[in-house]
Design a protein around this nucleic acid. Structure first.
Length: 106
DNA sequence: CGTATGACTAGCT
DNA sequence: CAGCTAGCCATAC
């Protein structure tokens, strides 16, 4: 109903807020749930402006490979990295272990 | 309304 | 395995 008037970004924020602690989601995953699997760029385009931190746990959003990208808050990916690790996310080298930390939307 | 930009992804070299 | 190119989408100016 009212979701027909919200912007693509607002929908993305809502999805990101649904990500459980200790898990991460990829931009493509969120984009797909939003209705546009190829809108991964649009997702980041909205987050880049830091809309509502810490209301939106955008630090739980990583690249398709599990690599951390951007982050306009804190010290950048550096802070993002610490937050994820602090929440229980498992890291594999310089990336997140999507095999165990990838959020599965149902 | 048209152009430029950006926290992406997949494919190729 | 690493680096570069092209394609796609929404927002901001």
């Amino acid at each position: 109903m009212s979701e027909l008037r919200i912007s693509f970004c607002d929908k993305v924020y809502k999805i990101v807020k649904q990500i459980p602690r200790g898990k991460v989601a990829t931009y493509g995953q969120i984009a797909k749930i939003s209705g546009k699997e190829r809108a991964a760029r649009a997702v980041g385009a909205c987050m880049r402006n830091n809309p509502d931190i810490p209301k939106t746990p955008c630090h739980r959003v990583v690249a398709a490979d599990g690599k951390l990208t951007g982050y306009s808050a804190g010290d950048g990916v550096e802070t993002k990295w610490e937050m994820l690790e602090e929440e229980g996310v498992i890291f594999k080298g310089d990336k997140v272990d999507l095999k165990v930390s990838l959020w599965e939307s149902k």
